[in-house]
């Protein structure tokens, strides 16, 4: 069974005037069908306004389909009785760490989710410990969240989600506000959860270099999935991505530029090592 199955999903934002007459309809998600298998690391790219966040909110049942169906771990998100189960299965981390931390002490904040789910006290503390350790924030458990850096806050937010033992975590531009080490910390924590705990990851980002570890990449434009493939397949198409207001990692771009200048290099170089391998042949 797929972790997430989305079939012909359509979402429209409808604007009405004072008399409730429809004045504007904007189709943010336009007939999307995708499947995500358990344990996959999926990245979603797309320019501002391409529909990524709207799509993400459907996976967490923050939005319901206008048309089409979304199943999370086999549960139809539009069925009200599934609501809490869906949100327990798919946890979401947002862009701004300051908007999602509520506890006055780190460990309380992380314990809030499982407590809300009715997990017994003993186990809550176990989960808090595991989750904070998983994201490398255990030593900060007694601190006040507002004394932490952006990367640290974001890892606490992730720990809060991890403590609910979700099968899937959606990161909606969760690294956008972080410094390079903060981004690395978060990515490392997320990849460890993916590889060790086999948590399914859906990572929405504008940082192309964060995408190279993904099993699969979806590129969105005007509410549709316009490209789908491995990072190598996606990043082989530099010009197409640029037309979609996107980018490729610097190493990919350099390889592409060198190739255009006549140096025989494969398409879709993703890491410095791969580039070295190609250039070494010419030394």
């Amino acid at each position: 069974m797929e972790m997430i199955k989305i079939k012909n999903l359509i979402h429209e934002y409808i604007r009405r005037d004072e008399e409730e007459n429809v004045v504007d309809i904007k189709r943010a998600v336009d007939d999307i069908s995708i499947d995500v298998k358990p344990g996959e690391f999926v990245a979603i790219l797309g320019h501002n306004g391409s529909g990524k966040s709207t799509l993400a909110k459907h996976i967490n049942a923050l939005l319901y389909p206008g048309e089409g169906t979304v199943w999370v771990n086999g549960m139809d998100t539009s069925a009200e009785e599934n609501l809490w189960k869906v949100r327990e299965s798919a946890g979401m981390v947002f862009q701004n760490p300051d908007n999602q931390i509520i506890g006055s002490v780190v460990e309380e904040d992380v314990g809030f989710g499982p407590e809300n789910m009715g997990v017994p006290t003993e186990e809550i503390w176990q989960r808090v410990e595991e989750s904070l350790k998983a994201v490398g924030m255990w030593q900060y458990r007694k601190k006040s969240p507002n004394r932490l850096s952006g990367g640290q806050k974001q890892r606490v937010a992730i720990a809060g989600v991890v403590a609910m033992h979700p099968k899937c975590i959606i990161l909606d531009e969760a690294t956008a506000m972080l410094d390079p080490s903060g981004r690395k910390e978060v990515l490392r924590a997320v990849r460890a959860l993916n590889m060790v705990e086999e948590v399914t990851i859906i990572h929405i980002t504008h940082y192309m270099e964060e995408v190279i570890y993904a099993d699969k990449v979806f590129v969105m434009d005007q509410g549709k999935v316009v490209m789908e493939g491995t990072p190598k397949e996606i990043f082989s198409q530099v010009e197409k991505l640029q037309k979609l207001r996107l980018d490729v990692p610097q190493v990919t771009l350099l390889a592409h530029e060198l190739k255009k200048a006549g140096v025989p290099i494969e398409d879709g170089i993703l890491t410095i090592d791969e580039l070295m391998e190609q250039l070494d042949k010419r030394k």
């Binding site: 797309g46 320019h47 501002n48 862009q95 531009e173 956008a176 506000m177 504008h206 192309m208 640029q242 207001r245 996107l246 980018d247």
Partner: peptide
């Protein structure tokens, strides 16, 4: 202060 955070690459 961080004017490009959250913008897509082209917007940035």
């Amino acid at each position: 202060d961080e004017p490009t955070a959250g913008l897509d690459p082209k917007g940035r």
